[in-house]
Design a protein around this nucleic acid. Sequence first.
DNA 1: CCAGGGGA
DNA 2: TCCCCTGGG
Length: 331
Amino acid sequence: MGVNIGAILEPKETSLETISGKIVAVDAYNTLYQFLSIIRQPDGTPLKDSLGRTTSHLSGLIYRTTNLMGDGIKQVFVFDGKPSELKAKVIESRSERRKEARRKWEEAKILFPEEAFKYAQASARINMTMVEEAKILLTYLGIPCVQAPGEGEAQAAYMVRRGDAEFVSSQDYDSLLFGAPVVIRNLSAARRKTTPEVIELKELEEKHGITREELVDIAILVGTDFNPGIKGIGVKSALKLIKEHHSIEKLIAEAEIEKIDGIENYEIVRDIFLHPEVNESYEIKWRTPDEEKVKEFLCEEHDFSEERVSKALERILMPKIKQQRRIEQWL
DNA sequence: CCAGGGGA
DNA sequence: TCCCCTGGG
């Protein structure tokens, strides 16, 4: 998933307190996928309501969003639009991979139960219903949703560039290529073990002495969702090549690479990252959460525990009053 | 993933 | 308070 440039990045640890009061543009698809693949029983079965409908994505959403809201973090969810036709190959191969994983999952459930979970994870797929349900829940929570015409990460990056948000929240790095100044990873509830970390585009450029255009060319050499990349070239060697030659054109001209298999369409891919299609007239507005609607949707329709949902909602309606009391007592 | 309880 | 574990839907 996404582009594999992690090895040349140096994420900096941060904290929820640092992010408090700031706006985060959340890569919705990435987040939902994460929930769907991880929130499962040991045998790989996702959470389901009494009618057998999957609810893992809703469970993840309600608890995390309310936790972050309680910590004073504002979220706007950005949803994917139509995928580029160049993604057809990737989509096809992912679909194949999932089919194979599903088969292995069924097999493992009987023969190697301890392996079942990982195959279930690999077979996870976000469908249209899940996306619609997520939008409904977020709307009831008063969290704005922005629809991208194309790539959600491109839209989120644009929103940060415009100053409408401070970070893109995603586990993938693609939004850096789309020009997001700051990406935040591991944004989750406070008591998790993993700490949130930020990657700044400017720092990355300065550290390696490259421009974003060059970074995009590095990614193309390695492989993106829009092209396979050159076999045998990882991010380290791609960085070295581009630092030396500055562009794929020159790299080819100077005959440094023998075959261009896997990067034939590099000009188009480059254009996708540098000039993506975005919606410029979105509206971001936070509303007061509709407690009753949230409870109706989650508890009545999807069998969530009313006690748990109420507690989650309390976090947004009384955000961190405890802390204030403690300070008052001290004074 | 997150909630909540139990034990150190 | 922290860590670990189990269940959540």
